[in-house]
């Protein structure tokens, strides 16, 4: 025991020398969904946005990953009790927890992604996923030679149905005769992380004649990309720009800028301009869109892009109304 005590004393000293100084005065707490910060999709995007704020704005950032659903509420509360200025919950699973904790700490600022919480000190960051999906649907139909396009969704929930509905509408806008093959990976959160199933579904859709498949399935989408490689056909990415993952095969990615939403919320809160309520991210403020970079420059032709940008303008000025699953299924 005596030896270990000395060792501990040494370690305390060691740690004291290493402990970082926390000079930043604006503190942001991030409670990630169960996927965790390395899911290379939704949570990663949120974490990147917050990390950007850390380097650009000099905030103090702390993130936690929830081990189970019952951990959301105490995690949010722990941040509030520790004098964090802004607490952000990532994902609709935290809706009830954010609602409860925000009501208990009316002086604190909260934000939640993908869910509406009607408490004055909460900002709900909502995305117009259907608008972005409409554009990639149109791009898919313009690129398809078979007149058949595919959709592989992750978990079968209204959020992903919203992607599907927008995608179908976009494809039909270009080619009313287009056939959209749609499948979902699963019905539980496991569906976000099942690449083999995503691949199976995609292979089956390619075999049935689809030559472009939109994967809105989190990490399961990586399986769809594998199928695209195997069949040498096109796939479309989601959330983050995934064009680089299989250059020449990922036609484009439907961007959902969770990172932007998180960053701008932190920026405004730090400047003292935080406001509650619903903040929507759509085509108009580049919250959603499609990607174009060096990795898909050769496969996404200029004419296709021009037409997509025309459609984008028509959605923004109200000439096209994209069907919204949330509104149609209330």
């Amino acid at each position: 025991m005596r030896v270990s005590r000395k060792l501990f004393a040494l370690l305390v000293l060691f740690a004291a020398c290493l402990s970082p100084s926390t000079a930043a005065d604006f503190k942001v707490g991030l409670v990630l969904d169960r996927g965790g910060k390395d899911d290379k999709s939704f949570n990663s995007s949120a974490y990147e946005g917050a990390n950007l704020a850390k380097s650009k704005l000099g905030i103090y950032l702390k993130y936690v990953e929830a081990a189970d659903d019952n951990a959301f509420e105490p995690s949010l509360r722990a941040f509030a009790q520790r004098d964090f200025d802004l607490i952000i919950g990532i994902g609709f699973a935290q809706k009830e927890a954010v609602k409860k904790v925000a009501s208990q700490f009316p002086q604190k600022h909260f934000a939640i992604v993908d869910s509406e919480v009607n408490v004055p000190n909460v900002r709900s960051l909502m995305f117009q996923e259907h608008e972005g999906a409409f554009l990639v649907g149109a791009i898919a139909a313009m690129t398809s030679k078979t007149g058949k396009v595919g959709f592989v969704g992750g978990m079968d929930i209204p959020l992903i149905r919203r992607f599907e509905m927008g995608y179908t509408a976009g494809a039909k806008r270009i080619n009313p005769q287009v056939e959209v093959l749609a499948n979902f990976v699963g019905v539980t959160s496991e569906a976000w992380n099942n690449p083999p199933k995503g691949k199976e579904l995609a292979l089956s859709q390619y075999d049935r004649g689809a030559d472009v498949i939109f994967a809105a399935a989190g990490a399961s989408g990586l399986g769809v990309f594998d199928a695209a490689e195997q069949k040498q056909k096109f796939a479309i990415g989601v959330d983050a720009n995934q064009d680089w993952t299989k250059p020449g095969l990922i036609l484009t990615s439907m961007l959902k800028r969770v990172d932007e939403a998180v960053f701008s919320t932190i920026e405004e809160a730090k400047a003292g301009k935080f406001s509650g309520g619903v903040k929507r991210f759509g085509l108009a403020n580049n919250g959603v869109g499609y990607s174009f970079d060096q990795y898909n420059a050769k496969i996404l032709s200029e004419t296709v892009r021009q037409r997509a940008d025309e459609l984008k303008a028509e959605i923004m000025n109200g000439k096209i109304e994209v069907p919204d699953y949330y509104k149609l299924n209330r």
Binding site: P20, K62, V64, E65, A66, A67, A71, P74, S75, A78, F79, R82
Partner: peptide, 20 residues
């Protein structure tokens, strides 16, 4: 352990709740 390790997430730089 399950509960305590959540605190590690908050109070340390390198350890996440998975350490439980």
């Amino acid at each position: 352990l399950h509960q305590g390790t959540r605190e590690l997430d908050f109070s340390t730089e390198h350890i996440t709740s998975e350490v439980s």
